[in-house]
Simulated assay, not measured.
Amino acid sequence: MKMNYKAPLALGLLSLALVGCSNKAIKVAEQKPSPLPKISASSSLVAVANYSVAATNAVDPLRLQLGLAQGQVFAADPKGEVTAYQGKQRIWQSKISKAGISAGAVAGEGIVVVANKKGQLFALDQATGQTKWQNQLSSAVLAPSLIQAGRVITLANDGTVFAHDISTGQQIWTYNLPKVDFSMRGTAAPVAVDPRTVLVAWANSYVYVIDTVTGIPQLQRRVSINDGRSDIQRLNDIDGEPVVAGRYLISTSYQGQLTAMDLASQQVIWSEDASSLRSPVIFDNKVFVAQSSGQLTAYDITTGQQLWQNEQLLNRRLSNPAVLGNQLVVGDLDGVLHLVDPNSGNLIGRAKTSGEVRSLRSVDQQLYVSSQKGTYSIWQNR
């Protein structure tokens, strides 16, 4: 079972962590974030929309996000509501769970999907917000589902992968990942490889490629290694979603490596030591990683050669990086959105949202931001 314990991060995210099965409390030294560096801003962002929901727990790894479909956005509230907007106009609002929402929202094929810590999975009608179906899974859900090929693919916190029929909610198949006794609290969301297959990353440092229709695994491969002596030193989770780009599968892990695998040969092409709980991003044949220490690093996608490293944002609890236009963007613990030149790593601008940035997504030249304080915002280049 994936334990509900948060191990101490290298950047001093927590002042208190619970480790092992004894629930023994261990003090973790807090590391002071680097001050914001002075920059000569040449680029900036402008907010085009903001939506407010309840805040999440500051030490909870929830990564709630806006669901997007047909020009509408769907905002999941941790208190259990889902709201649909067309621009700034509210279309509908549905209270669906007294147990709150811990994962979502994702939208597609006519439905909006969210889930909660009780393991309840909900599918709502995109047009009306009415619940189309609901299912009880085996444990808490902490990452968004994937809607693909008429299926809703969900990874529960105990390592069970579920596939449900998108129309009826009928369970089509399950796939059980190996049990992990000790891990970071958090999971990577399922990722589409192609229209027929889905990739799931797990806390045992393996990735699994599964046939979406049948549930039959097509590949399993370890992509990270850790030789630490203690349980904490051996933590080697993959909590950030791997990225598929052509023949490449790029993954990061905590206290492990950034790894590039060839999907055709199923062989690791290169790996570089890098600790990250965030998903990498690929742009212009470069791989960008926000490391747990706050280092922002760029690598050549073909060779793994390090191209540059920015250390101006150390201990600022960076979000996953995203690409907007021809610029790199990363958020931090103070809600600052940093604009970075992807060719040099230089900071070239910044903007500010409210609360620690938990996730970034770039879709159709707009940046979708979610924060710990419950602020969803949409940005574009000025």
Rank of each mutant, 00 (worst) to 15 (best):
T128C: 11
K117F: 07
K95E: 09
L137N: 04
K118S: 15
E109R: 14
G110W: 05
W92K: 01
I91Q: 14
L121I: 13
A143Q: 14
L121R: 00
S102H: 03
Q134V: 12
T131I: 15
A115V: 12
G119P: 11
W92T: 05
L121W: 08
L121P: 13
K118A: 15
T128M: 13
W92S: 10
Q134W: 05
Q130K: 12
S97C: 07
S97I: 04
F122L: 10
S138W: 13
L137D: 02
G108A: 09
I96A: 02
Q134A: 11
I111G: 02
G100R: 09
A99F: 12
S139N: 13
A107M: 10
S138T: 14
W133I: 05
T131Y: 01
K95R: 13
Q130E: 06
L137A: 14
Q126H: 05
I101E: 00
A105Q: 00
S138V: 09
R90F: 03
W92D: 07
V141S: 04
A107P: 10
A105E: 06
K132N: 04
A107K: 06
T131L: 04
Q136C: 06
Q130V: 05
A105I: 06
K98V: 11
G108C: 01
W133T: 03
G104R: 00
G129V: 03
G108P: 03
G104T: 03
I96C: 01
W133Y: 12
A127R: 14
A127K: 15
I101R: 00
A99T: 10
